[in-house]
Amino acid sequence: MPTDKLEDFILQNRETFDAEAPAEGVWDRIEAALCVQEDDCDPFESFVAKRREDFDGTTPPPRLEGRIFAALDEVETAATPQLRTVQRRRAWLPLLGIAASLLLLLATAFTLGNSRGYRSAEEDRLAAEIARIDPDFAEVESFYRSKIADQVTAVTQANHDPQLIEDLAAIDEATEDIRNALLEVPVSQRADLVQKLIGTYRTKLDILLRIQRQLPPPPMEEATTQSNNNEI
């Protein structure tokens, strides 16, 4: 029936019939009318309410995100109970799988358009370029590199599994390759590449921290001595 079709059409497009927006000045007129009625309007409060979002205009520095998630990792690492030795080895397998996937991803991204090369003289140029793109990037990058170096030391000192060491070295190598490629891509693409680089640092740090959670607890004797030393 035509009427049903019309009804259906209206119901199906109900929101479109409310698409018009009132003029911007309407609220001011309503507010002014309310002020006359209530006699307690505060122009200052009205101004803040009207421009509320503008008061949140300051952007947190990018380094803050890195600090928060590194702190969260430490909290989670401290809170995770240690597993038994037999379970540990098994638990690494998926982590190493993630590491291997990351390695593959990094290598693929790298081979798409960049050549490799280690030149210590370029280190300064790289740091300067990253700082030029955004000084905060340089700070975030430095933060992650330092954190990752600490975690790699902690993980490799506590475990001498050659496969683990080999995988970690391969991830390091692939990340370095991407980092070195920064000077070779067009300038317009460098900020994006730095963002991706920082993303890989985050992932690498996540993996290292997760591996570290599976590390064995300190020997009982040492732990007991430590505990005794703390007693007065």
Partner: peptide
């Protein structure tokens, strides 16, 4: 404890909370 979800939630609220 999905890290991507944590990052996304941080992304939504970091700015107003920082201010």
């Amino acid at each position: 404890k999905d890290r991507n979800a944590q990052r996304a939630l941080y992304g939504h609220y970091a700015k107003p909370m920082y201010n």
